Simulated assay, not measured.
Amino acid sequence: MIYTRYIYSLEEEEFYQFLADQPQGVEVIRRQDNRVEFATYTELKWLKPLKVEKIKVKPPESFLRPIRIRSFLIVPPNMKTLIINPGMAFGTGLHPSTQLSLMLIEEFFKRGWSAIDVGCGSGILAFALKKLSARKVLAIDIDERAIEECEKNASLNRLKITCLKAKPEDIKESFDFLVANLELSIFKREIDHIKPLFKKLAIFSGIYGKEELEEFLFFLADLRVVKIKKLKGWYAVVVKR
C-alpha cells in the first residue's frame, strides 16, 4: 500500500494548540529553534507543506492517539498514562504552566535521577517524573488537601512516591532534579529556600507574561538559564548549576 506523507512546520505554541484539536494525531519529526516539524497522512488545507512524499512504510505507532469510546480509553502502548483526580488540588494537565512543565520534564529529565516537586498540588508532575524512571521522588505542598489528593493519585497510578506537607525550608536534602510550578509571588518569597534543593537541573513554571519573566530572571542570576519556553502567554525556565 502507498501512503502520502505531508510534512509541515509550526511554531511550538501553534503546534501544541493544533495538536489538541487533531483527533488523528501527528508524527513528530524534529524540534528545533522553537519550531516543530511534523508529518500527517491527510492534507491540512490551511497550511502549506514543506514536502509531500509517497511512502510504502506503514505510519509509525507514535502517530496514534488515545481514543475514547464512552467510559473506555484506548491508549497506544508507546504512551505513558497518568490518572489524575485533582479534588481540591491544582494540576489536571489542562493549564499551560502544567503542560510546559511536562514538556520540559520529558526533554531534560534523566533516568535514575532523584527529584523533588515543590508545590505538588495533585501530584501530576511528580508522577511524570516517576514514570520516567526517577530513582526517588518527593512531592511537597503546604496545603494538606493537596497532599491528600497527591497520595490518592499516587495510589491510583500505583506509583511509589512520598507526598509530604512541608515548606521548602523544611527539606534538609537536595535532589538531582527539581520542578516547581508556582506563582511569581511565591517564587519571590521562597526562591532562596528552593534553590538549595537541587544539584543538577531545575524547571520553574507558572510565570505569566514578559514582565513577570524579566522580574523572575533577576532571582536566577546565580544560575545558568538553559531554556525558556512559552505557551499561551505562560513561561517556564530551565536552569542548571
Rank of each mutant, 00 (worst) to 15 (best):
E106M: 14
E106F: 02
E106P: 09
E107N: 13
F108D: 03
F108M: 07
R111P: 05
G112V: 10
G112H: 01
S114T: 15
A115R: 00
I116V: 13
D117F: 03
D117E: 03
V118W: 08
V118P: 01
G119Y: 06
G119N: 01
G119H: 02
C120D: 07
C120Q: 05
G121D: 02
S122V: 05
G123Y: 01
G123I: 04
G123W: 05
I124D: 06
L125W: 06
L125Q: 01
F127K: 01
A128R: 03
A128D: 03
L129R: 00
K130N: 05
K130M: 05
K131E: 09
L132S: 12
L132G: 06
S133N: 13
A134I: 00
V137F: 00
V137M: 00
V137L: 00
I140C: 13
D141Q: 12
D141N: 09
D143E: 12
E144N: 10
I147P: 01
E149Q: 04
E149R: 04
C150Y: 08
C150K: 07
E151V: 01
E151M: 04
K152C: 05
N153P: 08
N153W: 02
N153T: 04
L156E: 06
N157L: 02
R158L: 13
I161H: 07
I161A: 01
T162D: 14
T162E: 14
T162P: 00
L164P: 00
K165H: 07
K165L: 10
K165N: 10
K167D: 14
P168W: 08
P168K: 11
E169G: 00
D170F: 07
D170Q: 09
I171C: 08
I171F: 01
K172P: 11
E173K: 12
S174L: 11
S174G: 07
F175G: 03
D176T: 02
F177Y: 10
F177C: 08
L178D: 11
L178N: 14
E183D: 11
E183A: 14
E183P: 09
E183I: 13
L184Y: 05
L184S: 04
L184D: 01
I186F: 10
I186H: 12
F187H: 04
K188F: 11
R189M: 14
E190H: 09
E190V: 06
I191T: 12
H193S: 14
H193E: 09
I194D: 05
I194V: 14
I194Q: 06
I194W: 07
K195A: 12
P196Q: 08
L197H: 08
F198G: 14
K199N: 15
K200I: 15
L201R: 15
I203D: 02
I203C: 06
I203H: 03
S205Y: 03
S205K: 03
G206P: 01
G206A: 07
I207E: 13
Y208G: 05
Y208P: 04
Y208T: 09
Y208L: 15
G209P: 07
K210I: 14
K210D: 15
E211Q: 11
E211A: 13
L213M: 09
E214R: 11
F216V: 09
L217N: 15
F219S: 15
L220Y: 08
L220D: 09
L220G: 10
L220Q: 10
A221L: 15
D222I: 00
V225F: 08
V226L: 13
K227F: 03
K227N: 14
K229V: 03
K230L: 10
G233S: 11
W234E: 02
